[in-house]
């Protein structure tokens, strides 16, 4: 198989525990190059943890996570940093540097890794800010931004190097319909024009349907369903019916494991 035909991200036998809780139990996953792949699933199933494994922020208990031919858990710090220079990451809470204004936040990766003339830095940053509709907010501080604006600035920062892979952790939260539409277009444009592979963790099925090529449904530590968004939404399995139908009853328990309800309320006479 030629390198370009290989999946950009290949996860094999991934197993992770956090305390007593099993997060991944032998998870396998392939992310094809140049695709937009959504990872969906109930809260607390490890979607963000999966992104952390792909970027080497967390090491698994067992298994392999290959990104562009490198097994991430085995990489040393220098090799990991070299790989991360080619990966953009949009944090769930934006994680903007609060000492810097919007412009400097987006310019930060450029200033750290490329010795570019100031004019070029300025042009690149303003181009990225224009793409997310915030060129006019370049001199605002992060504390002056709304949640949705901060997310768009973080998105501009994530794409400033035109990376080979972008990981979006909840990119649609807090966006108004106009911003959501533009961000969806931007993700699609980056994918189509630059061939950037994207992995997005999201809960908004309507947005995912408009942008993703493929959806993986994560539950109980494994991928329980995968396919095109429309195909998956019409799926007949218990997993897809419960998740996309938003039903409380099904293979994914709505309630966190707990003891007997009547006992906790003291209806059986046990309460003090």
């Amino acid at each position: 198989m030629s390198r370009s035909a290989e999946p950009l991200v290949r996860v094999r036998g991934l197993s992770t525990r956090l305390g007593d809780k099993v997060i991944f139990d032998g998870l396998d996953l392939d992310i094809p190059r140049g695709s937009i792949t959504a990872v969906m699933g109930p809260s607390g199933t490890g979607k963000t943890t999966l992104l952390k494994h792909i970027t080497g922020q967390m090491r698994p208990d067992a298994g392999e996570v290959w990104v562009d031919g490198s097994n991430v858990p085995t990489l040393g710090r220098d090799a990991l940093f070299a790989l991360r220079e080619r990966i953009g990451y949009l944090f769930q809470n934006s994680a903007l540097l609060t000492d810097f204004d919007v412009f400097e936040n987006v310019a930060f990766p450029l200033r750290q890794h490329a010795r570019l003339p100031e004019e070029l830095v300025r042009n690149i940053v303003l181009t990225k800010l224009q793409a997310v509709g915030l060129r006019g907010a370049a001199r605002l501080m992060p504390s002056e931004l709304s949640g949705g604006m901060a997310r768009r600035v973080a998105l501009a920062r994530a794409i400033v190097f035109d990376p080979m892979l972008i990981l979006y952790d909840e990119p649609f939260v807090g966006l108004d319909p106009i911003a959501l539409n533009q961000v969806l277009k931007l993700i699609r444009t980056l994918n189509q024009t630059l061939g950037i592979t994207s992995i997005l963790v999201a809960h908004e099925l309507s947005a995912v349907r408009r942008v993703a090529d493929r959806v993986h449904l994560l539950a109980n530590g494994k991928i329980v369903a995968a396919g095109a968004p429309d195909e998956l939404a019409r799926g007949e399995s218990d997993w897809t019916k419960q998740f996309f139908g938003g039903e409380a009853d099904g293979p994914v328990p709505f309630h966190y494991p707990a003891g007997d309800y009547a006992h906790d309320l003291g209806f059986d006479g046990s309460a003090a």
Partner: peptide, 10 residues
């Protein structure tokens, strides 16, 4: 997550 963001930006 600012420190984690720096790590992610290498």
């Amino acid at each position: 997550d600012q420190l984690a963001a720096m790590e992610m930006m290498a």
